[in-house]
Amino acid sequence: MSFLLVNQLSRIFDLSEPWILRKIKGQQKKLLKAVDKVNFSIERGQTYALVGESGSGKSTIAMMVAGLIKPSSGFITIDGYNFFSPTIENNIKSSLRKSVQMIFQSPYASLNPRWRVGEVLKEPIKAFNLIESENGQKQRVCELLEQVGLSERDINKFPHEFSGGQRQRICIARSLASEPKLIICDEPTSALDVSVQAQVLNLLKDLQKQFSLTYLFISHDLAVVSTMANRIGVLKQGILVEEASPNKLFEKPEHDYTKMLLSAAPDIKNVSKIP
């Protein structure tokens, strides 16, 4: 069985006005299908990319996989367990939380500006009771910082003392702190500059090899996705319109929407010829 299995996943948002106003105006309920019967699976140690434009439902899927939004129908299993199964025991839920972590788009909003880096990284260690001793925690924090290319000296700094790329490294370190199996990367580099983006993408690749991590990689940028993903799913308005390996998707796209995305994506290869 696949490590992550998403089966007939749907999520409907209720955007209608309060009941009483609806009755007065005689309106129907306004429902938005953000995600509509999406199926995909990821094998352990692989990267699956969800590509789509704004409103395609890719972030909603990420939040459901992370266990933060409840699916309207369908289910997700991670290593065989389902966050929203009615029979799930608390200790399994906790270990599931431990094994799924997330990296976000904005390197500014994803770190608490009032917390020092050391405190940020210690939080997951404490929350999951991974290491008891104060000394052990500190050692682990230093180890994490080194793994993402920062140093022990940064432990007492505040987030604002770092550049965007370094902050994203701190976020990666935080997500690694609980020794997760699955990391959801929600547009992890779209707020970063090109040279820094390359650093972060390479770091993610290295870490994947080192800890045999599974990635759910969410992005609007096909060029970024092509350097990261083993399989790519294209989302359009909540529907998975095409799913293929990068080879097939880039060489022989089947769906019109995929073709349109590929031709619209700016690519440095397509430098205009000498006029």
Binding site: S163, G165, Q166, D193, V194, S195, V196, Q197, A198, Q199, L201, N202, K205, D221, L222, A223, V224, S226, T227, M228, A229, N230, S245, P246, N247, L249, F250, E251, L262, A265, D267, I268, K269
Partner: peptide, 26 residues
């Protein structure tokens, strides 16, 4: 040169290689 090489391209073969990275930050 670094900027160009660090820019990802749409290319199925880029999966197995790493992007060139300029060390440090501006």
């Amino acid at each position: 040169k670094g900027l160009i090489e660090a820019t990802p391209r749409i290319d199925a073969n880029s999966l197995n290689s790493k992007l060139y990275q300029i060390p440090g930050v501006m």
